[in-house]
Amino acid sequence: MAWIGSVVALAVAGCSDGGRDTTAPAVPIEVSAFASSSVSVHVMWRADPSVAVFEVYRGDTKVLDVTGGRHMVDVGGLTPGTSYSFFVRAKDKAGNVSPASTRVPATTLSVAQGERVPPTAPRDARGQARGKDGATLAWEAATDDVGVTAYDIWQGGVRVHSVTGDHTTAVVTGLRPGTEYHFTVTARDAADNKSPESNPVTVVTEQGTGNGRNTAPTGLRAIPRTAVDGTYVDLTWTPPDVDGTVASYEVYLDGQFLTTVMWGVAPPPGDVRYSLPLGDRPALGHVLKIRGQLPDGTWGVYSDDLVIAAAPAGS
């Protein structure tokens, strides 16, 4: 289906509400920074999950763009024993940029000459659900020839949180109800040497309202129409009940990924409406399905397949 590429370009070029988005996203909050080694600082923040990009600044210089729904990053290439300041700005898909967050200071660690030995693996890692959307993890401290400076928490091969080396507990938030998660913990020292992983920890979050296990959008409806610039399919669906915001959706046509629907600001309340452009191709007979990106960053279950049929008379 060679025409799919042109459909993606049309879909991505427009806004979900048919108009130009000029509203800047909210300022990131709860910004923090701590030196995770002699050459890096770990910066974390909280923000609207629909934000497309976070711009991280060291002093007045932008050093990183963070995408993919991540709310933390290591800023590397720093000088040992040096003071820095950091702030974060949010940028939405339309290119609108928020004001700067609060500036936070951090001083990189000094490193012992020739420190090359990584810490031991954290031992006896364990965890338990913290309500329907979080988990509390704990472990026995790792050892290092000089000292452990940070612990990193991993979920599904992705680092989801970090704490300083004097902590042996962490709280992971933004999870979804009634879901099984697998975590490991690693330790780092001032030279950024990384330990082996701890034993794996399995946590099942508590059930939320409406069970929380069904993460598929429901009630998908499609009405085809023809306009002067081509064929459109007007879609409507009900977001899944996942105790949080579903900020973006993937649309699949005949089993192939077509485009992503997302908002520069918070999604509109209630049912979702989106006009899907198909260029000069007919709409009837194609099969649609969608899935949403959940508050924990993972993708939910696909909706039921929907065959695009003729619009009802009088619609």
Rank of each mutant, 00 (worst) to 15 (best):
T245I: 15
M1K: 09
P295V: 00
F34R: 00
G156C: 00
R273I: 05
T164Y: 02
N199C: 04
L306I: 03
D254S: 05
V39Y: 11
N193T: 00
P277E: 01
T184L: 03
A313S: 13
T149S: 15
A309E: 12
H286C: 07
K132T: 14
G178V: 07
S101A: 14
F183C: 08
L284Y: 03
N96Y: 07
G114M: 05
P118H: 04
Y151F: 03
P200F: 05
P177G: 06
G134E: 03
A216Y: 01
G230C: 09
L306A: 03
N199S: 12
T169F: 08
G76H: 05
V12F: 12
A138I: 09
V111K: 11
V233Q: 06
P119C: 03
L175C: 08
T259Q: 00
G18F: 04
Y232F: 15
Q113A: 12
T173H: 04
A135S: 00
L235S: 00
A141T: 11
V242C: 07
L64F: 06
M44V: 08
P268S: 02
P239V: 01
F257V: 07
R281S: 12
G81A: 14
P277R: 01
N211F: 02
A2V: 09
R89V: 09
E30L: 11
A310R: 14
A26K: 13
I290G: 11
G5S: 13
T108L: 05
T22Q: 15
K91N: 05
R176G: 12
D192Q: 14
I153R: 02
L64W: 08
Q207A: 15
D192P: 01
G292A: 02
A310Y: 11
T184N: 01
G69E: 13
A313Q: 13
C15F: 15
V27H: 05
V117Q: 15
S101H: 05
A190G: 13
V228F: 12
T61E: 11
A309S: 14
A310M: 10
G219I: 04
V111F: 01
G270N: 11
A309N: 10
S303Y: 02
M44P: 00
G300Y: 11
V171R: 14
P277I: 03
T164L: 10
G178N: 14
T186V: 12
R273L: 12
A310P: 14
A2Y: 08
W154N: 02
A216Q: 02
G95I: 06
T260K: 11
H286I: 01
R130C: 04
A150Y: 04
E115K: 02
A309P: 03
P119N: 04
G68Y: 04
